[in-house]
């Protein structure tokens, strides 16, 4: 029998007592979650001067290397800076705990679990995730318990059979029209669809709408949050940077080397290189 011939009549009570409450509860929980996360957030821990210095030391050589091929600074200064950085990296002058003593082995890569600073960062991430997960689980349980198998709404447009598993989760009927949406599916539709609404209510950087990013990859947020607290092995970074510096040394070219020819060509006082070579 064809599903289109049979019409399902939904009790308006379902609309008033199931459909709307689910939506409203989800919106309110999202808003609440935003404020809880805001409350839970601890300001990022301040780094000490030495730690900042260590962190920014790599920046020095990166900045130097970034423009090496067309460097704005003349050779004598470039080589002085490059040499100085190379020496400093080799001697470990920028390390937070001072240069290594002779004979001392470089410390092993710091363990993320033993470092209290890193733990703080991880805890903050965990807390945010908990605030994200727990209400969702509760709502899902609530819907499963009270409204299992409810059909809530009929979509006003036809859909292919592939959407069945998406729209009729919790109802095991092979014959029902795909347009009918089950309660659990309505929950999922809201879960993914409310982000735009949260952005409207709470502003663009709210913590309620993170759920979709969390779904794409659980690490997507964690990497960003964990970065400042994450321990880095600066010994390795510095020695790698030394190689990079040597490489950049070979690339180095001063912008001023042939600037007079360039300017003269621009003003047509010298023949352009193409006509010169022909």
């Amino acid at each position: 029998m064809s599903s289109s011939t049979i019409s399902l009549y939904l009790d308006p009570q379902i609309r008033d007592w199931v459909l709307f409450p689910i939506t409203v509860v989800m919106i309110l929980v999202g808003v609440l979650r935003h404020y809880i996360v805001t409350l839970l957030q601890t300001p990022p821990k301040k780094l000490t001067r030495a730690a900042i210095r260590e962190q920014r030391a790599v920046l020095r050589s990166q900045v130097l290397r970034a423009t090496a091929a067309k460097s704005p600074i003349p050779p004598h200064i470039y080589h002085a800076i490059s040499l100085h950085l190379d020496d400093a990296f080799a001697a470990g002058k920028y390390l937070k705990d001072g240069p290594l003593k002779p004979g001392e082995a470089p410390p092993a890569a710091p363990n993320i679990l033993s470092d209290p600073n890193a733990m703080d960062g991880m805890m903050a991430g965990m807390k945010a995730q908990m605030v994200m997960m727990v209400p969702q689980m509760v709502i899902m349980g609530w819907i499963n318990f009270f409204f299992q198998g409810f059909v809530l709404i009929k979509l006003p447009f036809p859909l292919t059979l592939g959407f069945k598993s998406m729209l009729q989760r919790g109802i095991e009927t092979p014959d029902m029209d795909v347009r009918w949406v089950s309660s659990l599916s309505w929950y999922f539709l809201n879960f993914f669809g409310l982000n735009g609404l949260y952005r409207l209510i709470l502003g663009s950087d709210n913590s309620a709408s993170q759920s979709s990013q969390e779904m794409v990859s659980p690490f997507a947020g964690a990497v960003q949050q964990g970065q400042p607290g994450q321990p880095m092995d600066y010994h390795k970074i510095f020695s790698a940077e030394r190689d990079n510096l040597q490489f950049a040394e070979g690339l180095y070219n001063w912008l001023g080397d042939d600037v007079e020819t360039r300017v003269l060509r621009k003003y047509g006082k010298l023949p352009s290189p193409s006509s010169e070579s022909s």
Partner: peptide, 8 residues
Amino acid sequence: KMFLVTVD
């Protein structure tokens, strides 16, 4: 050289 770089 540097003046010319500025011009450039």
